[in-house]
Simulated assay, not measured.
Amino acid sequence: MSNLGKYFIFLGTLFRNREKLGVYLRLILNECTSIGVGSIFIVALVNSFIGAVTCVQTAYNLTNPFVPHNIIALIVRDSTILELAPTLTCIVLAGKVGSNIASELGTMRITEQIDALEVMGINSSSYLVLPKVIASVLMIPLLVIMAGFLSILGGYIAGTLAGVISPEEYVSGLRLDYKPFGVAFALIKTVVFAFLISTISAYRGYNVQGGALEVGSASTSAVTTSCIAVVAADFVLTQLLLT
């Protein structure tokens, strides 16, 4: 059977013989803290500088004197909301969150902790993986919302400090021809990306066979596969929702 088929079978096991709701609530809260709070700094840092660089580079390339400066802010806004905030943030989180999920489950597999759960009659995939998936779907969209805000703010600070755009022109550009569906589109993409990152990483870690070397290989494979899945899903969703 192909890896894709095994992956879908693995997804099916997450919803069989589940534990009581109270057990999952505690696990989900723990995972929300690990995934959400633990990723705030890296997401904030990356997106703030990405917004700043986008603003300055856009201003550098707008050499036509007849193009109004508020177009700079419009480009920063649209590129941030439609692409940079959701996609770039999820690629960063694929490296941080995805590798953490894969290595944690892989370590539990080679130390036989997962086998011990199975012996006790617990559905180990549901108990260990489902809270991570739910927490990812809940927290990563919140991180993307923060990322979008900080990216636009970073563009504002960099643009005004560098003198390439005035505060009034930047705010005017943010309001120019605004389409609310862009935010909904970004959040839809983010939920799909979060699901892919968490489930692919969990699948790689849960099915590790061997020792510490194989755990490292599974972690690397989880990050690589998640990044490919994110960019592929990005293309498909863009074709479906924006055309």
Rank of each mutant, 00 (worst) to 15 (best):
D234S: 12
A202Q: 01
R175Y: 06
P131M: 08
I134N: 10
V192T: 12
L29C: 07
V208C: 03
V23Q: 11
T33F: 15
R16C: 04
Y156Q: 13
G182L: 10
I152Q: 03
V56R: 06
K179V: 14
I228M: 14
I157W: 14
S39Q: 04
E104K: 13
K179I: 13
F66T: 14
T89M: 08
L143G: 09
A222G: 02
A52M: 12
A194M: 09
G121S: 03
R175V: 09
S48W: 04
K179T: 10
A229L: 08
E31Q: 15
K189F: 01
A44I: 03
I140G: 07
F149Q: 07
G51K: 04
A102T: 09
M146C: 08
S79I: 02
L128K: 00
I42F: 08
Y24L: 04
I101N: 14
I50E: 03
Q57L: 05
M139N: 03
M120E: 09
T243N: 14
Y178F: 15
P86D: 11
P167Y: 08
M120A: 13
V137Q: 01
M108R: 14
L176F: 15
G98Q: 04
S198P: 06
S124I: 06
V144S: 04
A102G: 04
R77W: 04
S125T: 13
F66R: 12
G210T: 14
G22W: 06
F193D: 07
I157N: 10
L237K: 13
S172Q: 14
L242F: 14
I42C: 06
P65M: 10
G36P: 01
N100V: 08
Y170N: 05
I165E: 00
L93H: 02
I145F: 15
A147M: 07
G12R: 14
I40M: 13
G154D: 01
L117D: 11
R18N: 10
I75M: 05
S221M: 07
A44M: 07
F49K: 00
I122N: 05
A194F: 03
